[in-house]
């Protein structure tokens, strides 16, 4: 059983996770995947939580009104800056999925 990290559950200052009746709401499966990946890599120590949070707050301030789009953009930029993935491989892989060259079920 995973423990909920209160720093994540209690995100605030405009970065609060979308909720309904207190429960997290994912409007589409990709939102849940994006959420989960960020939390897993944080648990594994790939970056400090505050690093992600600062980028999320920035993205929300200047980016899309859709919460998890900002979330995903913050995650991408963090991984790129840490050298975990490159802009090229990310772009190539995304277009393989978008064009169905690659099976989206794995």
């Amino acid at each position: 059983m995973s423990k909920v990290d209160p720093r994540i559950a209690n995100l605030d200052r405009g970065a609060a996770l979308p909720r309904k009746n207190g429960e997290l709401v994912f409007k589409a499966p990709w939102e849940g995947r994006a959420f989960g990946m960020v939390v897993v890599l944080n648990e594994k120590g790939a970056y400090a939580w505050d690093e992600f949070r600062a980028r999320l707050v920035e993205e929300i301030a200047e980016g899309s009104p859709e919460y998890y789009e900002s979330w995903l953009s913050a995650f991408e930029s963090l991984l790129i800056d840490h050298g975990v993935v490159s802009v090229d491989e990310l772009g190539r892989r995304a277009s393989e999925y978008a064009s169905l060259e690659r099976d989206p079920v794995f």
Binding site: A28, W30, R33, A34, M37, L41, K44, A46, E69, L72, F75, E76, L79, V84, V85, E89, L90, R93, A94, S95, E96, Y97, A98, S99, L100, R102, D103, P104, V105, F106
Partner: peptide, 23 residues
């Protein structure tokens, strides 16, 4: 399968790459 939207494709790209890298 229906083609994923751009944002879905970006999410799939990230998850598959992170899995391949063993992260």
């Amino acid at each position: 399968p229906e083609a994923p939207s751009d944002i879905e494709a970006r999410t799939l790209a990230l998850e598959s790459l992170l899995i391949e890298k063993g992260l």
